[in-house]
């Protein structure tokens, strides 16, 4: 489903050039669960942002579901994002002014889904994530684990083909973290491709395959032990 070849990303300031990604090539098949690991500053998040069509590479190619998207215009990338990709962040990134249900509903609004269908989908996903009883609460009224479950609910509400998770358990204690990992695994088992950036060896064990980055390069790729 995803194929990148010789991907490059360079950050420039006035005096310094930093290669965040250097000739990275990898493929992710439909239905895979891939973990990307590496020390801070190795380029994991940069890679994830490019995979999520939030950032553009400076070189190389990126094929998403058969089409080249490395330099697609913002409008097309926004369209692909809202149809096919769900995001889960370390810091949850829920909108504080919206309730749980409204946060989850947001992607459907941008997709132009009708009100009745939105309600049905939101209810379904909230029940699945076990936060239905919190539907009218605001993010600050929830625990970290609950917030991340809402974030996952928002990521999957429009049934994306790909979920990108950036350190999804980074702000959670271990039991809440495990719950979130279980959720991602369930989604993966139901057919959704998951790519996750993580520091945690424990979390990486949920993945089928681990890709290790160092200084912007893939140094190791191995299947789950």
């Amino acid at each position: 489903m995803i194929k990148i070849e010789n991907l490059e990303k360079i950050y420039r300031t006035d005096e310094v050039q930093t290669k965040a990604l250097n000739n990275v090539s990898l493929e992710v098949a439909e239905g895979e669960f891939v973990a990307i690991m590496g020390p801070s500053g190795c380029g994991k998040s940069t890679l994830l942002n490019i995979l999520g069509l939030l950032d553009e590479p400076d070189g190389g190619s990126f094929t998403f579901a058969g089409t080249e998207v490395a330099h697609a215009p913002e409008r097309r990338r926004a369209a692909l994002r809202k149809q096919h990709i769900g995001f889960v962040f370390q810091s949850f990134n829920l909108i504080d002014e919206l309730t749980v249900a409204e946060n989850v509903e947001l992607p459907l609004i941008y997709l132009g889904v009708g009100a009745a269908e939105r309600q049905a989908k939101v209810t379904r996903v909230l029940e699945k994530m076990q936060v239905m009883h919190r539907r009218n609460h605001f993010p600050q009224q929830l625990s970290g684990g609950q917030q991340q479950r809402v974030a996952v609910a928002r990521a999957v509400v429009n049934s994306p083909r790909l979920i990108l998770a950036d350190e999804p358990t980074g702000n959670l204690d271990s039991s809440n973290g495990n719950e979130v990992m279980e959720l991602l695994t369930e989604l993966n088992e139901a057919g959704t491709t998951v790519i996750m950036v993580t520091h945690s060896e424990h979390d990486a064990r949920y993945a089928h395959r681990v890709i290790r980055l160092l200084d912007g390069q893939v140094v190791l790729e191995h299947a789950r032990a």
């Binding site: 999520g52 939030l54 913002e74 409008r75 926004a78 369209a79 994002r81 809202k82 149809q83 995001f87 990134n93 829920l94 909108i95 504080d96 002014e97 947001l106 992607p107 941008y110 997709l111 928002r154």
Partner: peptide, 16 residues
């Protein structure tokens, strides 16, 4: 800014 980031990530266009 954060809200804008989230909305864009989810798929909001600039016009929206």
């Amino acid at each position: 800014a954060k809200e804008v980031g989230i909305r864009k990530t989810i798929g909001a266009s600039r016009q929206q």
